[in-house]
C-alpha cells in the first residue's frame, strides 16, 4: 500500500500569469491520496485559479500538474482539455457559483454527469434509438447510481424537480452529487459550504468524511468556512498572492504566524470573522 504515502496529485512549480498579473506564482503542492486537503487563503489569493489550471479550464503559463491515477498511472493534467480531465483523469470539480442545469430535473442533472459511459453504451445513439437491451441495461445502471447518490445526500424527494427551483443549500448538495456521478478519483470542491447554514455545514462535514472513509475518494477543497476546514481537513495549504505561505495540519496552520498575518494583517480583510471563529474552539 505504497500509494497511501504517495500523493494522488502533484503540482510542481505552477505559474499562471494573466498579462501583468501573476495569479499563481511558482506554486508546488502535493495532495495526499484518500485524505481531505483544504486550500485556504484571502480573496484573490489564486485558489480558484489553481482549480482552473488543474482541471483544464486554464492553460498554465509554467509548471506541471501530475495525477497519480490508481488504475491509469501518471497523467499530465496541464495539457488536457477540461472535458478530458473529468473523463479520462477522473478529476471532477464543482464551482464557486453553482453551475447546475437549472431547467433540467435533479435526476437529469445526475444522468448527464454519466454521459460518457451512457453515450458509449448507446452506440453513438444508434443502439439507443433501437432500444437495444445493452443500452437499456446501461441506462438502468446509470439510474441506479444516480438514485444511490440522491438517497445518500438526502435529495431523493427532490429527484423530479427542476434543479433551478430548489433552495441554495440544496443546489450545493446537488452539485456535489452530480460530480460524484462522474465517478471521480479526486474531487475538487470550490467553496462547498458557501451559503450553507450551520446545520447544513455539519452535514457537509459528515459527507466529506464518509466519502474518504467509505468510498476511497481523495478530496481537495477551497473553503472559507473555518468550521468546515478545521474540522475535516487532514492537510491544509494556505495561499496568499499566488504563493504558498504555509502548509500542514489544522493545528499547525492555526498557530502559524504568517497565516495569522495574512488573514488579520490585511487592511480590507473580509475573512477576519471566519478565521477568528475557526480559531476560537
Amino acid at each position: 500500500m505504497s500509494d497511501l504515502l504517495q500523493p494522488i496529485l502533484t503540482v510542481d512549480r505552477l505559474t499562471m500569469r494573466f498579462g501583468g498579473l501573476t495569479a499563481i506564482d511558482d506554486l508546488s503542492l502535493a495532495v495526499p491520496a484518500r485524505k481531505i486537503t483544504a486550500v485556504i487563503g484571502p480573496n484573490g489569493a489564486g485558489k480558484t485559479t489553481l482549480f482552473n489550471c488543474m482541471t483544464g479550464f486554464y492553460k498554465p503559463t509554467l509548471g506541471s500538474v501530475r495525477l497519480n491515477h490508481p488504475q491509469r498511472g501518471v497523467l499530465a493534467l496541464e495539457g488536457l482539455p477540461s472535458h478530458a480531465v473529468a473523463h479520462r483523469a477522473q478529476v471532477v470539480r464543482t464551482f464557486q457559483n453553482i453551475r447546475l442545469f437549472p431547467r433540467m430535473t435533479v435526476l437529469e442533472n445526475l444522468i448527464v454527469a454519466q454521459h460518457n459511459p451512457l453515450q458509449a453504451a448507446s452506440g453513438f445513439s444508434l443502439a439507443g434509438l433501437l432500444g437495444l437491451p445493452a443500452y437499456r441495461r446501461a441506462e438502468a445502471k446509470a439510474l441506479e447510481t444516480a438514485v444511490g447518490w440522491l438517497t445518500r445526500l438526502k435529495l431523493i424527494d427532490k429527484a423530479d424537480v427542476a434543479a433551478g427551483d430548489l433552495p441554495y443549500g440544496t443546489q450545493r448538495r446537488i452539485e456535489i452529487a452530480r460530480a460524484l456521478c462522474v465517478d471521480p478519483v479526486l474531487l475538487c470542491l470550490d467553496e462547498p459550504a458557501a451559503g450553507l447554514n450551520p446545520r447544513e455545514s455539519a452535514e457537509l462535514n459528515e459527507l466529506l468524511q464518509s466519502l474518504v472513509a467509505d468510498d476511497d475518494l481523495s478530496i481537495l477543497l477551497i473553503e472559507h468556512d473555518m468550521s468546515v476546514v478545521m474540522n475535516v481537513s487532514d492537510h491544509i495549504c494556505v495561499l496568499n498572492y499566488g504563493r504558498k505561505i504555509a502548509e500542514g495540519t489544522p493545528e499547525e496552520i492555526r498557530n502559524n504566524p504568517s497565516v495569522i498575518q495574512a488573514y488579520l494583517g490585511e487592511e480590507e480583510d473580509e475573512n477576519m470573522d471566519a478565521s477568528t471563529e475557526g480559531a476560537a474552539p
Binding site: 482541471t55 477540461s82 472535458h83 473523463h87 464543482t94 447546475l100 448527464v112 460530480a179
Partner: peptide
C-alpha cells in the same frame, strides 16, 4: 443550460 458545467463533467461540448 451550462456549457462550462458540461465540460467539468467530462462532456466534449
Amino acid at each position: 443550460e451550462d456549457e462550462i458545467a458540461c465540460r467539468a463533467l467530462g462532456i466534449n461540448v
